[in-house]
Design a protein around this nucleic acid. Structure first.
Lengths: 197, 197
DNA sequence: AGGACAGGTAAGTAAAACATACCTGAAAGA
DNA sequence: TCTTTCAGGTATGTTTTACTTACCTGTCCT
């Protein structure tokens, strides 16, 4: 368990935590800088010491979370062989994460993808790492003959991510409960076997 | 081809058109009311005559578009029998719409779902109509034995919508081209038959 | 003729995001 | 030990932006 090279100064930590906290109740647009500062117990000025602008706070909240998410996924995949088995585990891990971290789900599913800055952010780079993990698994599955070769890997990935995200969206938006096991089972079943009887 | 009961006054039309136009280049948050007014050639005050607030313009742009989208879908489905055939057509129609109306895709995939107001809007009611159309087809497919009964209809719907939306997201975000036929074929193939060889 | 009213404008307000100049204490060099 | 430096933090603007309010104008109905 290695520490982050330079741990965040306390002020920055408080700011990130404050936004995370506020996002539990309300959406990003309705949260003001003044509110974040007040909740964090710091002045507005300090926020602009550590963050380029309001959205930058959001991206860094996401990035911090994504770091632990990636670590968890990599750990989850250890010791699992076979593309389908690994895919199944990734699906389960993603759903589990969304199901148990609603703020994280809200941010990534609803709040960031509409701004150009996000795609320049560190968080987006981390998202790409997860993408690479899945693409690699799929390609290995195709090579090994576990997965059909006549569907391009990108479509398989889109369907997997799409199914996961859409299934977790109700939770993110309306705070409806999700059973990770049930969701993972049905999605995996559908994608592996199709909907025909 | 029936007309809308009360056609929009010219000012309102210009405002909707202006936002639609501006969204072709930039995201909603970065567009200002002043800019919309200037582009439309009206004053800011008029905007608040016709719209509750800034987001309301967005919702109405979406609603206007969704009206024609729903009409198109209903027309597309006419004369097609069998749940799988109908599902295939809906998938194709949705992708076709996203592929050929980028602003529409951007709005619905990226801009609206993060605000509570959206879920009170007329646009959202229209989205629910499409949802009902799909759910009905799936349920009929299950009854007719065309579709497995052991996967809940909601998961099938989520996977279909998710696959479509994720596949169109690159287009919405990065303006990458989509081949409707190719995308529809692969998605349909995957969801109907699964990824196992 | 004359009100009622839809369509539209001008000018203002409040608040939010963001900027700037400054303070403070700890610690590292000399 | 003195003092320079600098990260961490504050107080106080400024500018931009969403939204408001009071008003104007032509048209249509009776």
């Amino acid at each position: 368990m290695e520490q982050r090279e330079t741990p965040f100064p306390p002020g920055k930590r408080k700011i990130l935590k404050a936004l995370r906290h506020l996002l539990e109740e309300r959406n990003f647009a309705s949260i003001t800088i003044a509110e974040i500062a007040r909740t964090a117990g710091v002045t507005e000025g300090l926020i602009y010491k550590y963050f380029k602008d309001k959205r930058d706070i959001l991206h860094q909240v996401l990035s911090v979370h994504y770091e632990t998410f990636l670590a968890q996924i990599q750990r989850d995949l250890k010791g699992i062989d076979g593309a389908l088995n690994r895919l199944q585990k990734v699906i389960w891990s993603c759903i589990d994460r969304y199901a148990n971290h609603r703020v994280f789900a809200r941010i990534i599913l609803l709040e960031v993808r509409n701004s150009d800055d996000y795609f320049e952010s560190q968080a987006y780079q981390q998202v790409r790492v997860l993408n690479t993990i899945i693409m690699t698994i799929i390609e290995q599955g195709v090579s090994a003959g576990e997965i059909r070769r006549d569907i391009p890997a990108a479509y398989i990935r889109n369907t997997i991510f799409g199914a996961i995200e859409h299934s977790c969206m109700n939770r993110a938006i309306f705070n409806k409960a999700i059973s990770t096991d049930e969701a993972a089972r049905h999605i995996t079943d559908l994608i592996f076997n199709g909907i025909k009887p």
